[in-house]
């Protein structure tokens, strides 16, 4: 794609007369644009309707499966409790994500600068990653006094590895000729890191960040379940557990939908961030003409 193509498509010869094939292509693109929003919405409404009908037709009692109307009533009726819980879970998630970014990217840079440090520590980062957090969490809550710190630690353990591994990959994926060029111009180690490796690693880092965003939420939820924070200061997962004990299934669904909404929000926010940082130069943000 050359610049002239991009600047003046309307000045291209024959732009007024669109052939049949081109017209079909444009019509298809229009249809897809609309379908992108309409189809999922229709799908959602159909599912809700079917769910409601199944409950009514089979006369399922609400303590086994509540209909969507009851879930909605719980969502609005228990909003104060659920919203406080969401704030708590959200806070732990975001703090864990921030620590995962600092720890993951920091370790990646450290590993990149010193092969010896990488060789010493990397196996342990992998071990920490492959050991299921549910099995580490009970130990953490024995040794860590503060529940918040314990939950943060759990969520961090789950979330930091994708940032570490993708940033490491990115730091090592520098174009060889550019690396040579920096050497010829006598660049210092810091200039190379700052002006060459970090920008090269950015798309990889952002990919890892998107995964870490989802994982830190999972980590926070698992930590809450293990910590079993009852009563005041309980997060969404603890609310689900608590509602389960009381057979308040509607509230379980309501809390679950809020966790899902949080996950979607985190993913959307990180995708937007990634788009804003890469749209000017990276292939992934490139719009293709055909």
């Amino acid at each position: 794609m050359s610049l002239t193509d991009q600047l003046a498509p309307e000045k291209m010869p024959g732009a007024g007369a669109v052939d049949a094939d081109e017209a079909r292509r444009q019509a298809r693109m229009r249809r897809e644009r609309i379908a992108r929003w309409v189809l999922p919405a229709v799908m959602l409404l159909a599912t809700l309707w079917l769910w409601d009908r199944i409950v009514v037709w089979n006369e399922i009692p609400h303590y086994i499966l509540p209909g969507p109307d009851r879930v909605w009533a719980s969502l609005t009726g228990d909003w104060d409790i659920l919203f406080d819980a969401a704030l708590l879970t959200g806070r732990i998630t975001l703090m864990a994500l921030a620590l995962a970014v600092i720890g993951g990217a920091g370790l990646a840079i450290l590993f990149n600068q010193s092969k010896m440090v990488e060789l010493s520590l990397y196996p342990y980062a992998v071990i920490l990653q492959v050991t299921p957090v549910v099995s580490i969490a009970p130990l953490i809550f024995i040794y860590v006094e503060s529940k918040t710190a314990g939950m943060l630690l759990c969520a961090w353990i789950v979330a930091f590895f994708p940032v570490l591994s993708s940033t490491t990959l990115g730091l090592n994926s520098v174009d060889h000729n550019l690396r040579d060029l920096f050497r010829i111009y006598g660049a210092s180690r810091w200039q190379k890191l700052w002006m060459l490796q970090l920008p090269s690693a950015l798309p990889y880092f952002l990919g890892g960040l998107k995964i870490a965003g989802g994982l830190s939420l999972i980590g926070a939820v698992v930590a809450e379940l293990v910590a079993g924070t009852g009563g005041v200061g309980a997060g969404l997962a603890a609310r689900i557990q608590e509602a389960g004990y009381r057979l308040n299934i509607a509230r379980m669904f309501a809390a679950l939908s809020m966790i899902a909404a949080m996950g979607v929000f985190i993913f959307a926010a990180l995708s937007l961030l990634s788009h804003l940082l890469l749209r000017k130069w990276h292939e992934s943000a490139l719009k293709r003409e055909n």
């Binding site: 000729n177 550019l178 060029l181 010829i184 111009y185 006598g186 002006m195 990276h282």
Partner: peptide, 25 residues
């Protein structure tokens, strides 16, 4: 030096790419 590939930094504008040898100094 000019390599077989253009070897430009994709994240930098044309002017910033040409500025690089000076920037490194």
């Amino acid at each position: 030096v000019v390599f077989q590939e253009p070897t430009l930094m994709p994240w930098a504008t044309v002017a910033d790419n040409v500025f690089l040898p000076f920037r490194l100094r």
